[in-house]
Nucleic acid binder design. Structure first.
Length: 211
DNA sequence: CTGACGATTCACT
DNA sequence: GTGAATCGTCAGC
């Protein structure tokens, strides 16, 4: 996958997010571009790894059993906003909220391929040079793109954060579905094939997929 | 108010 | 492979 822009960015419309099949949306987000512009600085990355969290019936989801708390309330919003929360007291994890109001679906973005603003991403992460660790893993994605828990609930169709389609197509044969990462507590739901990756992309987290 | 813990990462053995 | 870092969230008292 080349880190080049195929054509002008087209901001994904709300209709993309408000559909009911979050697993399908997670798959379709592969190849799309996250664009953030904070304090006038733009950084972008192409999504290469996602995970679907399938609402009230998904034991791995924070919204399992329709649990509404101050933190999870944003997951119950109308699709098209960001759900960002703090994990292990350190990492800010970025999710895309989907479906309609009161149906708490979300897609966790686990890895992107850096495109624009790599110098700024290096500054934010304190890394010296570009390598796959810059945006591999959900904590690193947020750090590089400048996404913080303060951005939870923020619109994904505004100017500060949005997701764009530049016409790039990930070949269906290059997409693989696997179990989600770090959700062992979810019992049988941990086995669901809700994680999507672009095969052989160096920015995808976890161990290399066996053939 | 208190304590346990997490959709992780990184350094170290 | 193992363990520490680090703090907001949440259930329970």
């Amino acid at each position: 996958m080349k880190a080049t822009i195929v054509s002008p960015f087209n901001k994904l419309p709300l209709s993309f997010y408000r559909r009911s099949n979050v697993v399908k949306i997670a798959k379709e987000l592969l190849g799309k571009i996250i664009v953030t512009t904070f304090d006038g600085i733009t950084t972008t990355g192409r999504i290469v790894e996602t995970e679907a969290y399938n609402g009230a019936g998904d034991k791995a989801s924070h919204a399992y059993g329709n649990r509404r708390t101050n933190r999870t309330e944003v997951m119950f919003s109308e699709g098209g906003v960001a759900y960002v929360y703090l994990c292990y007291g350190i990492h800010h994890l970025f999710n895309v909220v989907t479906n309609v109001k009161d149906t708490p679906h979300a897609v966790l973005v686990r890895a992107v391929e850096p495109m624009i603003g790599i110098e700024q991403m290096l500054l934010r992460t304190g890394k010296r040079k570009l390598d796959s660790t810059l945006t591999k893993g959900p904590g690193n994605v947020s750090k590089a793109l400048g996404i913080h828990t303060r951005h939870t609930g923020r619109s994904l169709t505004g100017d500060e954060m949005f997701i764009a389609d530049d016409g790039y197509i990930v070949k269906p044969a290059a997409v693989a579905a696997t179990m989600r990462i770090g959700v062992d507590y979810a019992a049988e739901d941990a086995l669901l094939p809700y994680r999507f990756i672009v095969r052989d992309n160096p920015f995808v987290s976890g161990r290399k997929l066996k053939l």
